[in-house]
């Protein structure tokens, strides 16, 4: 299935939920990420149940402070 993740075309195997995509994309601290799916911000409680479809545009938006004091969610 082809998705657009943070603006990049990304191919993933099989069906995925948002939670599974977060894992697949190596997001280590999903609590530090907001997810936008096709222009709408998802509720955190929907990460588990929301299945992704071919062509979906997904954006991971990260909490960012002022330069230190919070570790970013991925490497």
């Amino acid at each position: 299935m082809n998705l657009i993740v943070n603006g990049n075309e990304t191919n993933v195997d099989g069906e995925l939920t948002v939670n599974e995509l977060l894992t697949e994309q190596n997001v280590k601290m999903p609590e530090m990420v907001s997810v936008e799916l096709n222009g709408q911000i998802l509720r955190r409680s929907e990460f588990e149940s929301t299945k992704l479809n071919e062509g979906d545009a997904v954006e991971f938006l990260y909490f960012m402070g002022g330069g230190h004091a919070s570790e970013r969610a991925t490497d």
Binding site: E31, M32, S34, I41, R43, L61, F63, G67, H68, E71
Partner: peptide, 26 residues
Amino acid sequence: RCIFHSAPPAGAVPTCSQAGVLGVLA
């Protein structure tokens, strides 16, 4: 808050490590 509903939950960040920042970014 439309993007980030509220601050991350307690314990979301295990350590308060210094992540650093490239000065010119500011």
